[in-house]
Simulated assay, not measured.
Amino acid sequence: MIDLDDTDRALLRALAEDATQSAGALGRRLGLSQPAAWRRIRRMEEAGVIAGRRLVVDRAALGFGVTVFLGVKLATKGRVSLEDFERAVTAIPEVQVVQHVLGLFDYRLRVVARDIADFERVLRRRIMTLPGVGQVEANVLLTEEKRPGPLG
């Protein structure tokens, strides 16, 4: 574990807002030199605090207007391995996130589709045919807002 000071946390917040900012721009924003900002970022990357930088895609702009969270309970845990289910579900392009969870369901999936009819097609033809799928519960995303994380 790495000790982070207030400047490190400010750098993380700034990168969380826009990870494309240069070390020079971040330094100017936080009162650091470009090399000092770069060294701090590099130290956090090497320590695993910064695990990568991701591209955020506007799914609606690409024609994927529906997001559905699926709770999936496996029917036959003994006969179908979790790895078989995970391997099969991650091969479905509309499934954006696969989370193995504790609770009523075994998995939580984030699925995107063009519309409800497209989601129904994905559900019937792809998800319900996966090995071991038993009970499924769908929750359609209505709105989503980004909330400040633990550093906010």
Results as ranks from 00 to 15, higher is better:
Arg87Ala: 10
Ala47Val: 07
Phe105Met: 14
Ala25Cys: 07
Gln99Ser: 14
Ser22Gln: 08
Leu55Ala: 08
Ala51Thr: 13
Ile92Glu: 05
Gln96Glu: 13
Ile50Lys: 01
Leu15His: 01
Ala36Ser: 15
Leu15Ile: 09
Leu104Met: 14
Val56Thr: 04
Val72Glu: 12
Ala75Tyr: 09
Ala75Met: 10
Leu74Asp: 14
Arg87Tyr: 03
Val68Ile: 15
Val95Leu: 03
Ile41Asn: 02
Leu55Trp: 04
Glu83Arg: 15
Arg40Asp: 09
Val97Thr: 12
Ala60Gly: 06
Gln99Ala: 14
Leu30Val: 13
Val66Trp: 01
Gly78Glu: 14
Phe69Lys: 09
Lys73Ala: 15
Val98Trp: 10
Arg40Pro: 00
Thr67Glu: 09
Arg53Ala: 12
Ala37Lys: 01
Gly24Gln: 07
Lys77Thr: 08
Arg28Asp: 10
Leu102Glu: 05
Lys77Glu: 15
Ala36Pro: 05
Phe85Met: 01
Thr20Val: 08
Thr67Val: 05
Val57Gln: 03
Pro93Arg: 03
Gln99Phe: 06
Val57Cys: 07
Phe105Pro: 00
Leu30Glu: 11
Gly103Tyr: 12
Gln99Arg: 08
Glu83Pro: 08
Ala88Val: 04
Trp38Ser: 10
Leu26Asp: 02
Lys77Tyr: 12
Leu30Phe: 09
Gly65Glu: 02
Ala36Met: 09
Ser33Thr: 13
Ala25Ser: 15
Ile92Lys: 09
Ser81Gly: 12
Val98Ser: 06
Arg29Gly: 11
Glu94Arg: 05
Thr20Leu: 05
Asp18Glu: 09
Val80Glu: 06
Val56Tyr: 11
Leu55Thr: 14
Arg43Cys: 00
Thr76Pro: 01
Leu62Thr: 04
Arg53Met: 02
Arg59Lys: 07
Ser22Phe: 04
Arg28Ala: 10
Arg40Leu: 03
Gly31Phe: 11
Asp106Trp: 08
Arg54Thr: 08
